[in-house]
Structures are given as C-alpha cells and as structure tokens.
Design a protein around this nucleic acid. Structure first.
Lengths: 101, 101
DNA sequence: CCGATCGGTAAGCATTAACTTACCGTTAGT
DNA sequence: ACTAACGGTAAGTTAATGCTTACCGATCGG
C-alpha cells in the first residue's frame, strides 16, 4: 500500500525534478542539488521523502551518499494505475451497454 | 503536460477516495459525498481539481451534475510513468555495464 | 591529527491547501 | 408561482509542507 506515498511524493514539482535527475543514473546529493533553485538541505529533505516512498535508494560511498531510482515504488504506482484503468474500462463497457438500450 | 496536475490531484487521500468512488461508474455529487468524512462543498472543490486535471468529466442532468472518470488524465499519467520506467531500465543496463568492467 | 568536504538534522517561518459555514443560482415538482 | 433539492462559490480558519539558516557528525586527504 505504498502507492499513496509515491503519489504524494511525486506531487511536488521540486521533488519531481530531483527524481528525474536520477533518471539517467545514480548521483551524490551535491550533484543532484547542483542546478536546482533550492538549497542543498531542501534536497536532502526531498530525497528522504522519495526514499520513504520507495522511489529512490541510497548507498554510502565514502563521505558521499549516492542516490538512485528504486523501481520498487514505481512498480506499485504503475500497478495501481493499471488496476484503475482496467476497472474504468469495465465501467465504460457498462455505460455503453446502458447507452445502447 | 497535464500529468503534473494529475499527480498533484491524486496525491490527496480524500480526492483519491472520490476518484475511486467514480471507478465503478458515474455519480451525481450528492452520491459521491455520501459516505465521505467531509462536507459536500469540500467534495465539490475536490471534483473541481480532478476535473482540471482531466481525471473526471461532468455532465449536467437536470438539477444534478453527474461526474465520471475521464480517461484522458489517466492516459497522460500512465504515459509519464511508462516513459520514466523505460528510461530507468536503460540506466540500469548502463549500471550493469559499468559494474561488469 | 587537522582542516575541508559532504550531507543529514533541527528550528523556525511563510505559503499553500484542505476544510468549514454561509450563501446564492438553477431546475423540478406540485 | 412557490418550495424544495441539488450543488457551485466565497470567505475565513487551521494544519501541513516546503523552504531557509545554523549546526553537527562522519570521512578523506595533507
């Protein structure tokens, strides 16, 4: 049931920007924060949220922490949407039925 | 580029509850609000947000307004996630490459 | 060791956003 | 026409949250 957290995490623009920066591959915090319009501590806080949502993972590497996209949270989100999608398809069929008679 | 709005819309629990109530088929506002822990005006406001995000549609039917799931917003969201998913797959392959040497 | 880099955490502030009550316009039924 | 049902909108309050600065622990290089 973590898709809720994932949704909430990705709702914020800055957090999305951070997440998308990790799309091409792992980065240490400093590099993530580089071009962003917010301070580095802010980035740290956002990374925390993304991590709690299962969207990113962290590994220590000397003095730096390297963050990378974690597929786990993404899977749950996709599944949720997929499930929803199927349900609405069913509902639309029922609608069409009702429309026909 | 409306997937941002869709994400933000679905981030709120109450709004999700509303959205999911429409999953099985169209409902007038009153019916949507029925079992929810918030007032009817609150529901109206949430429906507005969902509508702006392209997630629900509205049709007037006498004195009542019937809301239903709009696939449009859902499509954009799915596409966004799908795109992201593919990109990270690429990144993970690159990672594996790097790991191998 | 010692200074420097890296980055997480705390405290506080300001903005956003979810809710409430009160109100008003519109349609339907009698 | 009058009343009731439905539901959107306005205004105000409160709680959440994104941000900043200040601080501190940990690791690496000289």
């Amino acid at each position: 049931m973590a898709y809720e957290e994932a949704l909430q995490a990705l709702a914020d623009p800055t957090r999305r920007a951070i997440f998308e920066r990790l799309r091409k591959g792992p980065l240490p915090v400093g590099r993530v924060a580089e071009g962003l319009p917010v301070s580095r501590p802010a980035v740290s806080q956002h990374l925390r949220v993304l991590k709690d949502a299962g969207l990113v993972g962290e590994r220590k590497e000397g003095t730096r922490r390297v963050y990378s996209v974690e597929r786990h949270g993404l899977v749950e989100l996709r599944q949720y949407l997929e499930r929803f999608w199927r349900d609405t398809l069913g509902a639309f069929k029922a609608e069409a039925e009702r429309g026909r008679r």
